[in-house]
Design a protein around this nucleic acid. Structure first.
Lengths: 205, 205
DNA sequence: ATAATATGAACGATCGTTCGTTCAATATAG
DNA sequence: CTATATTGAACGAACGATCGTTCATATTAT
């Protein structure tokens, strides 16, 4: 039940929903290719196979398209939340997560879209809030894993597990960005991150 | 001798150089306040106290202003290169660097300007090159410190010191960005980074 | 006198948005 | 079931604003 109760779900509604998705997908492609500010509303409409005027029947404005995309980004995190929810030993979970999220970030479009949202977040409070909420979801799940690992004696007792979670994400995402610009393969980055993080967190024998 | 040999350095030349700097400084402020694409050339000219047309006597176009700013960013790294060049024990140098660079990144304008350049770098090759060159300077100096520390037995023998350097910078810069958006003080971030990095790099006793 | 610097009007392009209109799908009345 | 009313999707021209850049012209230092 994703829709609220009273929904006849007529044919027209389905077509409308489809159009909305077409527009959103087109916007993602445009923002990736040219960036948010360089992309015109006409570009989005053309790519979506929709008239300029009609786009405004589906979205109040260009800004709202970006907001919706930022919201959709959140759903992409679900697989990783699932990984982090597993009850295997914390170090195992951690390594699995790093590799999975690293693989996701190996696709440049995921990195670039995030960066686009990131840089809009600085001056647009509503996007900043979405951005922080999205990040918190991952951070909290990761923090929970760290705390559990510490309790079980599988991980070093770090002073501030939440900060550590943030740093782990930063190091992965930062590496992903560099692998887009330079020619360092993401595979190599992930390997280094795993080593670096494990060295920092595994208890000293 | 930053200028090429034959320079009478007349009054007019000094005034011209001054105007150029005024324009650059105004541009920095504008880019910080509104972002590169949101900033109009008129905004820059007005802020600099210069006519619109005259700005084009000093710079070929808007893009070149950003390029020049990106080049100036490089100079800002000099103090940190100096710290990294010290011959004290590597762990000491590393900690001093982390705190100094962290302090620099505690100023939001440094973070935001870097992010602005970062996100332009994705689609503008000349800026990407500058960006990578700037980063490499810091990375190489940091890598040298790590290698020395490993040789001296002061640091763990990491598989890839260059990757580690990148990660250290990523974790600091990532934390700086978050401290701009949310209300985590940079002081706290730096503390966590120092602990995290040291735990990863100091040899196990 | 010459060449550099400064000015702001003007240019064409493009921006995000609004508008009036058409038209097919849906809801309602008979 | 048929006829009518209502809705909202779809369109593209048009709007005013602003964009980066150029230009003719005036001023100024050398």
């Amino acid at each position: 039940m994703t829709k609220s109760g009273k929904k006849p779900a007529t044919n027209r509604d389905k077509a409308t929903a489809k159009r909305r998705n077409q527009i959103l997908e087109a916007a993602v492609i445009c923002f990736l290719e040219r960036g948010y500010h360089q992309t015109g509303v006409r570009d989005i409409a053309t790519r979506a196979g929709v008239s300029l005027g009609n786009l405004y029947n589906h979205f109040p404005g260009k800004h709202d398209v970006l907001v919706e995309i930022a919201m959709l980004e959140r759903q992409e995190m679900e697989p990783f939340l699932k990984i982090l929810a597993a009850q295997s030993p914390a170090p195992k979970v951690l390594e699995k997560f790093l590799k999975a999220y690293g693989k996701y970030l190996a696709a440049p479009e995921n990195v670039i879209l995030t960066l686009e949202i990131t840089s809009e977040a600085i001056r647009q409070p509503d996007i900043a809030q979405l951005f922080l909420e999205n990040g918190d979801e991952l951070t909290n799940a990761l923090t929970a894993v760290l705390r559990r690992g510490i309790e079980d004696g599988d991980l070093r007792r770090v002073p501030d597990p939440e900060q550590v979670s943030q740093m782990i994400l930063d190091v992965l995402e930062g590496g992903a960005y560099r692998s887009v610009l330079s020619k360092v393969p993401m595979r190599k980055v992930v390997g280094s991150v795993v080593d670096f993080v494990q060295a920092s967190l595994l208890p000293r024998q």
